Amino acid sequence: MTLTTARHPTASAAATRRPAPARGAGLGLLLALLATVVWSGSFVATRDLADSVPPVQAVFWRWIIALLAVAPFAARPFWRQRALLRRHLGFTALASLFGVALYNTLVHQAGLTTSATNMGMIMAASPVIMAVYARLGGERLGARRLLGMAVAVLGVLLLVGRGSLTIDLAAGDLWMFAAALSFASYSALLKRRPEGIDGLAFLFTTFVLGALMLAPVHAVSLAVQGGFPATPGTVGPLLYVGVLSSAVAFFCWNKAISLIGAARAGVVYYLQPVCVALLSYALLGEELGLAGGACMALILGGVALSSAR
């Protein structure tokens, strides 16, 4: 037995390792897709809140709700790993800044002056930035993945420009590009998460730090703008973005990146404009048209090409 293992180490290792990446990749793609679908709905909810809740207050309460949703599951691993988390506090604080405090504030700010559809479509720029980060980090993207990304980007641009490559940007659109940069930076950081930190403990810590970062700005907003009425029209969307878009979707996204990397998960994120357009069609009655369908086909084809092993 010892002689056989010594003679064929490569074959033996390959036989043991080959099935695991396939399973991990499938689960990673599925989790990235779930997060993308949930986040697509959050743009509709965010746009709905823009008329009644100041952006900073909406983001602050979003993370308070997310903390309450995650706490029953994350409190024990958080307490068990408190020394490890304290040792890597700088890294976690940076991830909280980009992924929790800054990104979501920019999204809610964008919702004041642009449509939910545009918000979802512009966020499709973030996978390009993720791929750049991955390449700078030494990851080889490969010709097929690059080609798939190019096809998906073309589909997104045509969808935003309604069949044309000429795009007219509002102020909210520029806020969304800043949000895309922030989210891509957060996703790139996740790949370098320190070894040994539990996913739920890390998620809970970023939520706590993000809420603390937002607390002073929230206090200023309350003093200057006043509060907002707690009605079904405000509480419902806040529960959606707090529980589903924050607690559930961020956990799925973080896990997906640990399995397949930021660049590959980012390719799945190109599906977000498709999801937003379909939701707008189903909930708001917006027509997709033949051009919209063709653009979606380009995006789906690009995602399939880039995600194939």
Results as ranks from 00 to 15, higher is better:
Phe177Cys: 01
Leu284Gln: 13
Leu169Thr: 00
Tyr269Phe: 14
Ala66Pro: 02
Thr206Pro: 04
Pro232Arg: 04
Glu139Trp: 04
Ser126Arg: 05
Val53Lys: 07
Asp168Tyr: 08
Pro77Val: 02
Gln109Glu: 13
Arg192Cys: 06
Val53Tyr: 12
Ala180Gly: 06
Phe204Leu: 14
Leu68Ile: 08
Leu278Phe: 10
Ala69Thr: 10
Leu106Phe: 08
Trp253Ser: 09
Arg62Leu: 05
Leu27Val: 14
Ser52His: 14
Gly227Asn: 03
Ser221Gly: 06
His218Phe: 13
Ser42Asp: 06
Ala50Asp: 06
Leu29Ser: 14
Ala304Pro: 12
Leu34Gln: 11
Leu169Ser: 00
Leu141Cys: 12
Leu29Thr: 12
Arg264Phe: 09
Lys191Phe: 11
Leu3Thr: 07
Asn104Pro: 08
Val276Asp: 00
Gly236Ser: 11
Ala249Val: 10
Ser164Lys: 06
Val208Gly: 08
Asp51Leu: 15
His108Asn: 15
Gly242Ile: 07
Phe183Ser: 12
Ser246Asp: 13
Ala179Leu: 08
Ile257Ala: 00
Ala14Pro: 02
Val37Asp: 10
Leu146Trp: 07
Val53Trp: 07
Asp51Lys: 13
Val243Ile: 15
Arg135Ser: 15
Gly99Ile: 09
Leu200Val: 08
Tyr186Met: 10
Val235Lys: 03
Arg264Gln: 13
Arg17Asn: 12
Met1Lys: 03
Leu29Gly: 09
Val241Thr: 06
Gln81Phe: 12
Leu106Cys: 02
